[in-house]
Design a protein around this nucleic acid. Sequence first.
RNA 1: GGGUCACUGGCAGAGUGGUCGAUUGCACCGGUCUUGAAAACCGGCGAGGGUUAUACCUCCCAAGGUUCAAAUCCUUGGUGGCCCGCCA
Length: 414
Amino acid sequence: MIDVKLLQKNFDETAAALMRKKVDVSVINELKNANETLKNAKLAYETLQAKQNELSRLFGQYKKEGKSTDELKIEVDANKATLNDLLDAQRTAEETLDAIIMRVPNIPDADVPDGEDENDNIEIRKVLTPPTFTFTPKEHWELAEQNGWIDFERGVKLSKSRFSVVAGMGARLERALINFMLDFNRARGFEEFSVPMLVNRRALEGTGQLPKFEDDLFKVEEEELYLIPTAEVPLTNLFQDEIINGADLPIKMTGYTSCFRKEAGSGGRDVRGMIRQHQFHKVELVSITRADQSDAVFEEMVACASDLLAVLGLPHRLVTLCTGDLGFGAARTVDLEVWLPGQNTYREISSVSNTRDFQARRAKIRYKEEGKNILAHTLNGSSLAVGRTMIAIMENFQQEDGSIRIPDALKKYL
RNA sequence: GGGUCACUGGCAGAGUGGUCGAUUGCACCGGUCUUGAAAACCGGCGAGGGUUAUACCUCCCAAGGUUCAAAUCCUUGGUGGCCCGCCA
């Protein structure tokens, strides 16, 4: 969450930054008022509590000295009722503030371009040239069915739409990709983790999926656990509530998990094929850094994902997301979009974000430096979405007869 | 799933109703000594809020309760150890 003190001290500037991210000005004012109410409520409660503590100390002293405590008791009892009311007021104020601030997105970096939606994103560069074909390239679902790699119908039979079954060479390729990506990331200094795919509410609040995006998550009701929408959640929250030695940063992690998303609100889009599934596989990068390190690590992570695509021989481009397309917790994001000849367009395959201290403030991830505890910066990025990488391989490496060439980099994994 | 015991600062571990946010050891940081290090000695050292800085408030797994007063007593929940049962 954002630093409410910043809003208090630097209202105009902070409000302007939030409005770039489409936060309504009324919400910003509410937030400021709620914070002031809380401060006043706290002051009132703490002043009386201090007095009450002092009286209690006296009480003990009187008892020891054998003095009468009758008068004290009357005063103390009277305060007690007031104290309870003040405490209630403070709690209400806290809840009010919390309810607002937990739904306020991160402040975008100053150099993030303004914009409405993905059309206003800015291309940074292209990597590799899209292949040319002597025939009309097919879309991935056609190739997948022809090669027997993906069985869409049986996926629906087992679960529902947006689930699929990967078979034979497709399944082996999927496994090879996961191993290839993990090894690649490890060579770049990211330590490998295998983490729970069911997490509790606290973890999801830490990374920002809750409370605002509950509708996007699959929940196991009777256990109060949620299926993770991305490994970013467990990996980042590994350090929830911890104070890390500053010298140990940056911590760079990678992990493979399945990811589960309800895709509420994506209605009708990408229903065909494997672009948008309720369950998909992803290898993730997550870093925890000192405040002064996050920009450099961000570039490392973008490079890691981009190089991975390049080594696979997949043409792609890097784009800087504009304010309107930026996710809830991100201060800045670079998307990697892979070329899909069948669709004749670039499609998102990875998204690397710096959340700065937004998640760290929620999850209480701090580091100690020169005796002080400082909120860490957290970053996450996909490296890569496995299903979409398979799609990209199918479409870019398809032959005229519909067969698919396997990228050299993967051969030793098959 | 049943029983039982436990949960205190980075770790270990005191404290069982009152000046306790907490003895002590280790770790850590600074200093003296040393060519340098180690050892020894001296000092510092939990977290959040608040303040220019102090005061002051909160936190001893969590939430309630008893009490003028709770780390300490009670209730519920969570987690962990051990025993029993069950199961890959």
